[in-house]
Nucleic acid binder design. Sequence first.
DNA 1: ACCTGAACACCGTTCAAGT
DNA 2: ACCTGAACACCGTTCAAGT
Lengths: 234, 234
Amino acid sequence: MIKKKRSRPRREDSLSRDQIVEASIALLDGQGESGLTFRNLSERLATGAGAIYWHVSSKDELLSAACDAIVARTMNAIPVGATAEATLRAIALGMFDAIDAHPWIGSALTHRPAQLPAVRILEGIGQQLRTLGMPDKHHWATAGALLNYIFGVGGQNAANRQFARANGLDRSDFLDTVSAAWSQLDPDVYPFTRSMAGQLRTHDDRMDFLAGIDLILSGICGLRTAATAEIEKR
Amino acid sequence: MIKKKRSRPRREDSLSRDQIVEASIALLDGQGESGLTFRNLSERLATGAGAIYWHVSSKDELLSAACDAIVARTMNAIPVGATAEATLRAIALGMFDAIDAHPWIGSALTHRPAQLPAVRILEGIGQQLRTLGMPDKHHWATAGALLNYIFGVGGQNAANRQFARANGLDRSDFLDTVSAAWSQLDPDVYPFTRSMAGQLRTHDDRMDFLAGIDLILSGICGLRTAATAEIEKR
DNA sequence: ACCTGAACACCGTTCAAGT
DNA sequence: ACCTGAACACCGTTCAAGT
């Protein structure tokens, strides 16, 4: 008697790239970055690893596509018609919230070079700089400053979230841990950091993020420092 | 006859954590992030994987320690005695150059949460903000803005370098590739990005980085925007 | 106390073979 | 054209056993 090998049920409809990307997002949201493996993914999609490779060329591409799906939705949700400054803030806050909801895109953005997701954001920022009447020669540096700041915050948020998840901490546990560590630093070497330990527990990430954006925007509005003179000198 | 197993020669002196960290830095500098494996490391140190684990608890800790060694050297090399603004620039440029020389620390910084390396930089920045006479309540948001901007640029630089290395491109090949990709974007959807494709080839990363720093510094010097009012309102 | 190195439990990726 | 799933070449980490 032939022993029929018991294998898991396979899907009957055929796979699509979109389904793979959506399943990846679900996995990343639910289990964090380490949750996205081809084994997890093929189980969830009731298929084999090879089937996924038919639609997608590598894990890197998959992560990029998942990230791009989120970024595209975020950028499409930015309301049009507001002032340039308000729109720049909306873009920045939109990305902040997107990274908050999907921490893994913070690390996807910082790790994969200037590809589609980054370009979508750059484009949104750049168009507003134009309407703001910023001289062309400052466009690149200015857009880059905003973009890199957003990426920097995103990357840190992602890292903090991942650390907290890996150690089974919630946000408040995590802040307590860092705050405690900072309180124990040598006061002679780290006076400033020690003095920040308290604020750390009560601060509002989103508010601080916005304050940074406004710092840059206010710099943009009043380009009058030594360095811009230096740049003009070239 | 007993066949004596030919094994690689082992070291005779004993291992130290410092030697392990230095060997890791050499590996990371020479072969990039993927070059740091316990197998590579134990071969280089003429020892076994277990020996390394005796001195170091995980790969994560090792990467952190390697990153911290570079950051500590960088921060110690910042000259003292200059004006606060000049020192802030020196810190930023010092980190930029350190990341340029060791791209992997860009990704180590963005991936491991607020630990020693980040604290060293935060402290340096914060002390200068104090001498600048910035009101205490703005310290956190301001220092965070500078720090996150530096991390953002660092992360992007690291990612770009790794991409270039993985594809066997030098800097100019890499810029050509991105520039070509941007030139082919749909002009109706990506007018700004397309217009940047040219500048991309000739731009100076370091100069643009400095321009961003100065944008933030100039915002710091003239805190007068809607958002700071908003923060004060709280 | 410090080290060895085989073994374990994973990865991403490939590919002959199936439909 | 699309999928299967075993196999491959790696990982980080552990641990009984040695000195």
